[in-house]
Simulated scan of single mutants.
Amino acid sequence: MSTVPYKVPHLAVEELFASPVRIGASISPDGTRIAYLAPWRERLNVWVEGIGSTEQARCVTADDNRSVHVYHWTDDPRWLLYEQDGDGDENWHVCRVDLENPEAEAVDLTPFAGATAVGFEMMVSRPGKALLHLNHRNPVEFDLYEADIATGELKMLAQNRGQVAGLMYTPNGDMYAQVWRSDGAIELVQWDSATGERRPVAKFDGSDYPLGINPFQLTTDGTGVWIGSNRDSDHTRLARLDLATGEETEVDSHPDLDLDTRSSVFPTLPSALILDRRTGGLLGVRYLGERQVIHALDPHFAAVLANLEQLSDGDLGAASSDESGQHWVVTFTHDRDPGATYSYDHSTGKSRLLFRPYPHLDPEALAR
């Protein structure tokens, strides 16, 4: 009895490393649209299309020089933001697109030559506003600004007085800063931006936090921060740091794995914390070993997660939902089907494959 050997399909290197046809999808806060990155004039740009409507896919950015890789929905479905630098200089600007006026040109919200914007964050407690750090006053010092998305107005909230790695603004107007000391330690201080007076809150050994404290996310009530902590432990776990007392309280941990903090180095990767889009509340925590493990910290999200993880045998990557938490768009990290993107409706339990970024690659022809 003879057998015919399996013939491995020919795969050209150009096919293996070809650009994605679509990637980086997310759902709008009102659940009516999805945005994603796809080529326009041989560069990745942001496209938007309607969900369950006649709205056709259209390209909403127009950069034929360099690909766009990062974009942000805002709490107003009219405005979409994206980040772009100039010819690879890594001086990132935040630009606004008007989805209701396709003919309008993009508006640069940070129009300062030679400066870069970092730490962009939408504020759940302040609709229509965003926080960001800018170094246009001094290239080595990043000041904290609040941007009004609709008007483009920039308001300085705090001027960096040096040795400050990050500034944080609470809903009640208090300012906190991570200060890098000369001995390598990191201090969290409450900071009066007018007088420069600092009240110590907590101190961290810098050798344990070479890239700073990550994650470092303000809690919904503004009285604490969720941090990655390894105090008295060999593993980085999630803790809540009280901003009044500096006391740490463990929120969640894994017996064998550390928090997945890769986003501190690669911002395009998802954060260790999965947050509620409407409230900013904590839904889940990512840990990373050979494979990812997600702990659900919210009953509703636990039910959602159980169904999402049935969509693929890969690891859940980027996940976005509308403000109701019912409609989701998710991608998966996978060895043979990278970036496969699905939509899921928790109210009906229905899901569907939206797209595969590399449809020309047969997962069955690739090595596990």
Rank of each mutant, 00 (worst) to 15 (best):
I186V: 11
K155P: 01
S312T: 06
R66N: 12
A158N: 01
V201Y: 12
L259D: 02
R58K: 11
S53P: 08
W92T: 10
L131W: 14
G228S: 02
R33K: 14
G114E: 09
E309W: 00
D143T: 04
R286N: 01
M168C: 09
F112D: 08
T236G: 06
E141M: 15
E90Y: 11
S347M: 07
G114Y: 07
S312V: 03
D205Y: 03
L275C: 09
H93R: 12
D260V: 01
V329L: 12
S28A: 14
A296S: 13
V118E: 14
L273A: 07
R356F: 10
L269G: 00
Y344P: 00
A272H: 06
L361N: 05
Y344W: 12
A117D: 06
A185K: 05
P111H: 11
T249M: 07
D75G: 07
P255Q: 10
G325W: 12
G196S: 02
V329I: 14
A62P: 04
T170V: 03
D89N: 07
R126W: 03
E247Q: 14
T32A: 11
L80A: 08
P270Q: 11
T261A: 00
G281Y: 05
R286P: 00
A367Y: 10
G52L: 08
L257S: 03
N135M: 04
E103K: 10
S324P: 07
N45L: 05
R96T: 13
W180E: 09
E83V: 11
D205H: 04
D64K: 07
P127F: 06
G314N: 11
A296I: 08
L283Y: 02
E103C: 04
L167V: 09
D205C: 04
D205N: 13
Y344Q: 00
Y169R: 15
M1K: 10
A130T: 03
L154R: 15
V304L: 04
N138M: 06
A318G: 10
R43T: 02
G224R: 05
Y358D: 01
L157D: 02
V4T: 15
T3F: 15
W79T: 03
E105Q: 10
A340M: 08
E49L: 07
Y287K: 00
D174E: 14
V293N: 09
P215W: 01
T236C: 05
S26C: 08
D87P: 04
Q159A: 15
V164G: 01
P111E: 10
I294C: 06
L109D: 10
R291D: 13
N65V: 14
Q84V: 13
T220H: 11
A38H: 12
H93K: 13
V21M: 12
H295K: 08
D313W: 01
F266I: 01
V330N: 12
E187S: 10
N45M: 07
V330R: 14
Y176L: 02
T220V: 09
T61L: 02
F266W: 03
Y209H: 11
A165G: 05
E197D: 14
Y71M: 04
A117P: 13
T110W: 11
V265R: 00
A147S: 13
D322A: 11
L316R: 13
F142T: 08
N45H: 14
P363V: 04
T341M: 02
L132E: 13
G128E: 09
G325C: 03
G196V: 01
